[in-house]
């Protein structure tokens, strides 16, 4: 069963990759990369159970989840503001 799931996940990673290659807009590629990250996380977790050593792989999957999100948000921020916030005006200080 686990082997089947890993196979299907590899296949869907391929589907997401096709979307990333075909585009057409840059947002489609970001979307594909995001979906790809989710599938990789689940694939790594399942793979850990498949080879019978899930502990290590779960830590990696967790880190992928956190880092992939940071990457996606950074990309979106650039696509919206043109940079990572260097040239935006300072926010007013928060009242205490």
């Amino acid at each position: 069963m686990l082997i089947l799931v890993v196979t299907v996940l590899l296949g869907t990673m391929g589907l997401a990759l096709i979307r990333a290659v075909r585009g057409p807009t840059v947002y489609d590629r970001i979307l594909a990369a995001n979906a790809f990250t989710t599938k990789t996380i689940v694939m790594v977790t399942t793979f850990g159970f498949m080879v019978g050593e899930p502990g290590l792989y779960l830590d990696i999957a967790l880190m992928y989840a956190l880092i992939g999100f940071i990457g996606t948000v950074a990309v979106l921020k650039v696509s919206e503001f043109g940079n990572l916030g260097q040239t935006r005006p300072e926010l007013p200080p928060k009242p205490k």
């Binding site: 990333a20 840059v26 590629r29 594909a32 990789t40 790594v44 793979f47 990696i60 992928y64 990457g71």
Partner: peptide, 24 residues
């Protein structure tokens, strides 16, 4: 910009290959 996205996917794939090779 799209190339950066592809590089993100590339890194993730490379990392997954390392995982599969047990180089955690």
């Amino acid at each position: 910009f799209a190339v950066v996205m592809m590089f993100g996917i590339y890194s993730l794939l490379a990392a997954t290959v390392f995982v599969v090779l047990d180089a955690v």
